[in-house]
Computed example of a mutant assay.
Amino acid sequence: MHHPSRPSVAKRRAADVAYDAIEALICTLRLTPGSPVNEAELAELTEMGRTPVREALLRMVSIGLIVQQPRRGLLVSNIDLADHLDVIQTRRVLEHVIAACAARRASAQERKAILACAERMEKAAVRGRLDAYMEADRELDEVTHYAARNHSAVKAVTPLIVQCRRFWYAYQHEGEIKEGARFHMELARGIATGDETAALAGADALLDYLEQFARRVIDN
């Protein structure tokens, strides 16, 4: 889906395209936690050059998605159950800021795109299409972040979203994606209607769902 208000893929920097492709591999556990990261293999897998892949990996090291260890090189970071509730607590604060900004600042076109992404999540959930659900979730984040026009909040929340997405994918047999889609739609409607109170309530409902999901996993 192309968002006219955002740069097209053709115009995006190669390193950004490489980053998205590698992030998807990590979030869907095709690159498993603790596994070594091979730059040449990733360049082949993502069909990107070595330079953009290297730049993407450096970004991932800076946000903790990939770790650099002496003598072992680059590794995909492990999922830390003990730390995950803190990740969600921090993300909640930032999602409040982004939801409020997006509700205030989104263009009419962006509001339509936000609703369309949430609708795609609902359709994918009904069909049990996990990959389509996650792709629509990524699109929803992207257009919402663009609409919020708050670079500092988006920059801070992005690594937390990636950690949540990977955690959710790893343990999604404990959750119900129809329920997840419903809470994303609640947030999307609040933003799309320009109702800051509803947008904040939607953000809270979504983070409550993620927190309850995490607690189920941790308690098992």
Results as ranks from 00 to 15, higher is better:
E179D: 14
P70H: 02
A116S: 02
P159F: 03
R129Y: 13
C117A: 14
V154P: 07
A102Y: 01
A125P: 07
M60Y: 09
A116V: 10
G202M: 08
G73M: 04
R30H: 11
Q89M: 15
E186R: 15
A136T: 00
H96K: 09
G64L: 05
T28D: 05
G180L: 15
E95K: 12
I114A: 12
L160Y: 08
F183H: 08
E142G: 04
A18V: 11
A132C: 01
L160M: 07
P36D: 01
D137R: 10
M134I: 09
R149E: 15
Q69I: 06
V126R: 08
G175S: 14
A132K: 02
T32S: 07
V162N: 07
V67F: 14
A199P: 11
Q69K: 11
V154Q: 02
L85P: 05
L115N: 05
Y146P: 02
E110W: 04
Q163H: 14
V53E: 02
G64Q: 09
A198T: 08
V162S: 13
E176L: 11
A40L: 08
A82F: 03
M60D: 04
T197P: 10
A198C: 10
I79T: 05
A40W: 00
L42Y: 03
R72W: 07
R104G: 12
R138G: 02
E196D: 08
Y209A: 11
K178S: 14
K112M: 15
D131M: 11
Q89D: 14
R111D: 03
A148N: 03
A40V: 09
V143E: 00
I191G: 07
